[in-house]
């Protein structure tokens, strides 16, 4: 999981080379996962692509309309704003990766007291429901009574309308997103750290490298496969941001129409305006963007990812 090295995996054997009985068993074990993948991922993708070329009535009923949905979506005035918001969110979320790396190294320091406590604290947001997270953050960010603004006012600064100022609210929501995902990233980094041989660190130490030097010159390069994996996963996940925006930006928020992501736009089209065809077209556009971004990341990895 921590190393994307599928391509160099064990020499392949064709199904025919495996004995028949074993092939059946293999199928049986892969079956449930494969079935889940087919039902919950592949079929919706196929269906989504199909629907993007249909005009769907408010209660079903489809007629083929060619690329009309795509024309409608590209003419949509809110699309550019939603795309920018989504990219901004995804870009900010990437900052979470170095933060997670530093935290992972710190809480894995040998002899650190309360290691377990720190791990629990950083992992708690991951197992908390997004609804609860969003509610608590909304209270903290409340313009009149939020802890953040009360603190600012206490030191003589003006408060900020965190959730109803365009752009500011996307940054704030991205920070909450980072906070929510940090725990998972720390765990994956911890796994990566355990894969670094102690001998390398000790050798660096003997050569006179201090903690910072060891971190920069040994740990960071050796963790680069993990960093790469996380950056790909982070971009894929954050391009699909919806729940935090939906929960933290109310319909009566004056910045609501300026604070949509691509998936919020998808939701608005499909489920509020009853236009499933256009919604499916947005989903296809999003799929294409994510594919392109992932392809770029895979190309760029040659420059900075070291596989031991």
């Amino acid at each position: 999981m921590a190393r994307l090295r599928g391509r160099e995996a064990a020499p392949r054997r064709t199904a025919a080379q495996l004995s028949r009985g074993r092939a059946w068993w293999a199928l049986l074990f892969i079956g449930p996962a494969g079935l889940g993948l087919a039902v919950f991922y592949l079929w919706p993708i196929i269906r989504g692509i199909y629907l993007s070329f249909q005009d769907v009535g408010p209660f079903g009923g489809e007629t083929f309309v060619g690329i009309d949905n795509f024309i409608e979506v590209f003419a949509e005035p809110d699309l550019g704003r939603a795309l920018l918001n989504t990219l901004l969110y995804a870009a900010i979320c990437l900052i979470g990766i170095p933060v997670a790396m530093i935290v992972a190294v710190l809480i894995n320091t040998k002899g650190l007291k309360g290691r377990g406590l720190f791990r629990v604290l950083f992992f708690l947001p991951v197992v908390t429901m997004p609804v609860a997270v969003a509610l608590v953050w909304r209270l903290l960010l409340n313009v009149d009574y939020g802890v953040l603004n009360l603190s600012l006012r206490a030191i003589g600064l003006p408060g900020v309308a965190w959730l109803s100022t365009p752009v500011v609210n996307m940054v704030v929501i991205a920070i909450v997103g980072i906070w929510m995902g940090l725990g998972t990233q720390i765990i994956i980094f911890t796994a990566g750290l355990q894969g670094i041989p102690d001998t390398l660190i000790e050798a660096a130490e003997l050569d006179g490298a201090g903690p910072v030097r060891r971190f920069v010159s040994v740990i960071v390069p050796l963790l680069s496969p993990t960093t790469f994996l996380l950056s790909v996963l982070s971009v894929i996940a954050s391009m699909q941001v919806f729940d935090l925006i939906f929960l933290m930006i109310d319909p009566n928020n004056p910045a609501q129409s300026q604070s949509q992501s691509l998936v919020s736009l998808f939701y608005a089209k499909g489920f509020l305006q009853h236009d499933l065809g256009a919604a499916a077209a947005i989903a296809c556009v999003l799929l294409a963007i994510i594919l392109v971004l992932s392809a770029i990341q895979f190309r760029l990895q040659r420059r900075w990812v070291h596989y031991e």
Binding site: R138, L141, V143, D144, S164, T165, N252, N253, P254
Partner: peptide, 10 residues
């Protein structure tokens, strides 16, 4: 009246 920013928060 409070502003819309305040109304959306409270």
């Amino acid at each position: 009246s409070p502003t819309l920013q305040q109304i959306t928060d409270t």
